[in-house]
């Protein structure tokens, strides 16, 4: 019952301009209006329009255009000045001499091809096994460490907490080698000068 009452009171009520000074622009869902605005406060006296010579306006437009164009030109100019990556660009000489530089390699016979394909397969298998072995090894090492930590926890919680802290000594990590031949002991490096012939790009 009361629900129906509620709905009956909940209706849009438009007031005529006679009642509401705001006119039909405002509408509300209640029977009475709690707030009143005074429209005259929003009003402002009109400003006097300045009259400008159309020639001046034209000149102004022109100037703006010029400025923009100048900026665009400057940007384009800078874009062209990118530092070239020499090793990525093929020198023209090489392109011209391409035919002369072609190697005369005869077609590879079937036997050789077969051998190569088999070798590829063998290599893939070898690498896969190596990878699996590595995974296993890493697992084993992690397990060993976890076991040590578990044992440590059984012994003393404090020591365990100390042990699981991050070690910041490791962070600038360096590693050298391995190389194919060891360094020569007491090697007397020959003196020499070097010339930096790389181009300067400003």
């Amino acid at each position: 019952m009361s629900l129906i009452n509620l709905f009956s009171s909940f209706r849009l009520s438009f007031r005529s301009s006679v009642v509401c000074p705001l006119g039909s622009r405002s509408f509300y869902t209640d029977k009475y209006l709690p707030f009143w605005t005074t429209p005259c406060l929003l009003a402002e006296p009109l400003k006097k329009k300045k009259r400008i010579d159309p020639a001046i306006i034209k000149a102004r437009e022109e100037r703006r255009k010029k400025r923009l164009e100048k900026q665009i030109r400057r940007l384009e100019k800078n874009a062209r000045q990118l530092k070239p990556i020499e090793e990525c660009e093929i020198p023209l000489v090489l392109i011209n001499e391409k035919k002369e530089r072609q190697r005369q390699v005869g077609t590879i016979n079937v036997e050789e091809l077969e051998k190569r394909v088999l070798l590829e397969k063998k290599w893939a298998l070898y690498k896969k096994e190596q990878h699996l072995k590595d995974l296993k090894m890493l697992d084993r090492i992690a397990y060993s460490q976890q076991k040590a930590l578990d044992e440590l926890r059984n012994v003393s919680e404090e020591l365990y907490q100390e042990a699981i802290q991050i070690d910041f000594h490791l962070i600038p990590f360096e590693s050298v080698g391995p190389v194919s031949t060891p360094a020569i002991e007491n090697y007397d490096t020959p003196d020499g000068d070097y010339q930096d012939i790389s181009k300067k790009w400003d």
Partner: peptide, 13 residues
């Protein structure tokens, strides 16, 4: 020598 980490890596008793 550089000790790797604060945690022990192995255990033996």
């Amino acid at each position: 020598a550089q000790i790797c980490g604060n945690a022990p890596t192995g255990f033996y008793k």
